[in-house]
Amino acid sequence: MTTSRMQDNIILQVQNVSKRFGGLLAVSEVTFDLPKGQILGLIGPNGAGKTTLFNVINGVYTPTEGQITFRGTDISGWKPYDVVGLGLARTHQIVRPLNDLTVLENVMAGACYGHESHSLTEAEVIALEVMEFVGLHERRNLLAASLNVAQKKRLEMARALASRPYLLLLDEVLAGLNPTEIAEMVEVVLKIREQGVSIFIIEHVMHALMNVSDRIIVLDYGQLIAEGTPDEIVDNPKVIEAYLGDPALAEKLMSGS
């Protein structure tokens, strides 16, 4: 009884998930839960397997071992398009919008094929609403190729949001942005959560991540080495050790508190 009520509150459950590429164990026996409505941060040094973990969750890779449960459904080994259909969307670290199409059309594509599967006319309504939300409304008729980095990141986010997800995976949406843009983006992320969307976010901009996350998990060499609130993570000696190879990053992490 209690477990099933617990289950109801968990939107994403990752159990013992491993991903092996030949001889390389990119993700190793990772287990964690993401409760509904929370923002979960994912940090770790470069090459720790963060993006690989995202790719395993959204179906780009099939996990070598383990189970991924999203809203009560076992989605391990599902294809990305089927995962989106259940309401799990993501953004990519490297943004590649459909350059020859307008911003509006880009976002419409997200709505058309998202979890609700809309016609073009309905998709346009959703796209306009989502663009208003992320602040791309004035640029809706420009070609996606003409946007700058910050705007492309917003576009990527708008495309994912247009699919009306329950859970959004954000892969470094703050990277390459200036402080003002970061503040604006953080605002957007918090607003998304207010709408009831759960968020799982990879980020290198530590102070921002510390501010938005309810909880944080830390990967190092594919293993989950720590889990806790931002404060607990900052004080965790294992985490600091993991970043020692990268003193600048450790510094940043410390100053984030």
């Binding site: 959204n58 780009v60 294809k79 990305p80 398009y81 989106v84 259909g85 969307a89 993501r90 990519h92 590649r96 919008p97 459909l98 350059n99 020859d100 199409l101 594509a109 997200g110 094929y113 998202g114 979890h115 495309r159 994912a160 699919s163």
Partner: peptide, 15 residues
């Protein structure tokens, strides 16, 4: 056209 621009991204968009 989403597939033409980036097939992996298209898949992740639910296509």
């Amino acid at each position: 056209m989403s597939i033409r621009e980036d097939e992996d991204a298209a898949m992740a968009m639910g296509i």
